[in-house]
Computed example of a mutant assay.
Amino acid sequence: MQNAVDAIKARRHLQSNASLGEVRVSLDKRCDDFWLVVEDDGVGMSEQVLTQNLVDFGSSLWRSTDVAEEFPGLAGLGMNSIGRFGIGFFSFS
């Protein structure tokens, strides 16, 4: 949830539109299990984020120096992330 909120906040800052973005939460039944699904239409992830930050346990793009390269000027727009633990595969296990 934190990562979805941060992606929406970043999109709103970068596009100067406070009404952009949506977080959708659902409980889906898949086979015999239930899954909590969180989706957003925030800033998305580049190939670099998918191949580096995603697989790095506990790594948060928002708290790294990589964020300036990924989203130039975002910090200057007042973006403050709420996520603390990164987007890694282990964040949902």
Rank of each mutant, 00 (worst) to 15 (best):
V23L: 12
V23G: 08
R24N: 11
V25Y: 05
S26Y: 09
S26A: 10
L27A: 05
L27C: 00
D28T: 12
D28H: 11
D28I: 07
D28E: 14
D28N: 11
K29G: 07
K29F: 07
K29E: 08
K29M: 10
R30C: 15
R30E: 14
R30V: 15
R30H: 15
C31H: 11
C31K: 14
D32F: 07
D32T: 04
D32G: 02
D32I: 02
D33M: 08
D33H: 06
L36W: 09
L36H: 09
L36S: 10
L36C: 10
E39I: 03
E39A: 05
E39L: 03
D40Y: 01
D40W: 00
D40V: 01
D41E: 03
D41G: 12
D41Q: 04
G42Q: 12
G42V: 01
V43G: 05
V43L: 04
G44T: 08
M45N: 08
M45A: 09
M45T: 05
S46V: 09
S46A: 04
S46E: 04
E47C: 01
E47G: 08
E47W: 11
E47A: 09
Q48I: 13
Q48R: 13
Q48M: 06
Q48F: 13
Q48A: 08
Q48P: 05
V49A: 15
V49L: 07
V49G: 06
V49Y: 13
T51V: 08
Q52L: 04
Q52T: 14
Q52N: 11
Q52R: 10
N53W: 14
N53C: 15
N53S: 14
V55T: 00
V55K: 05
D56Q: 14
F57I: 11
S59Y: 12
S59V: 06
S59K: 12
S60T: 06
S60E: 02
L61I: 02
L61A: 03
W62A: 14
W62M: 07
R63Y: 03
R63C: 03
R63T: 00
R63N: 03
S64T: 03
S64Y: 09
S64Q: 08
S64D: 08
S64L: 11
T65V: 08
T65H: 00
D66I: 09
D66Y: 10
V67P: 03
A68S: 03
A68W: 09
A68Y: 07
E69L: 03
E69R: 13
E70I: 13
E70Q: 14
E70T: 11
F71Q: 01
F71S: 01
P72G: 07
P72Q: 10
P72Y: 07
P72F: 06
G73N: 00
G73V: 05
G73P: 00
G73K: 08
L74N: 00
L74S: 04
L74G: 00
A75L: 05
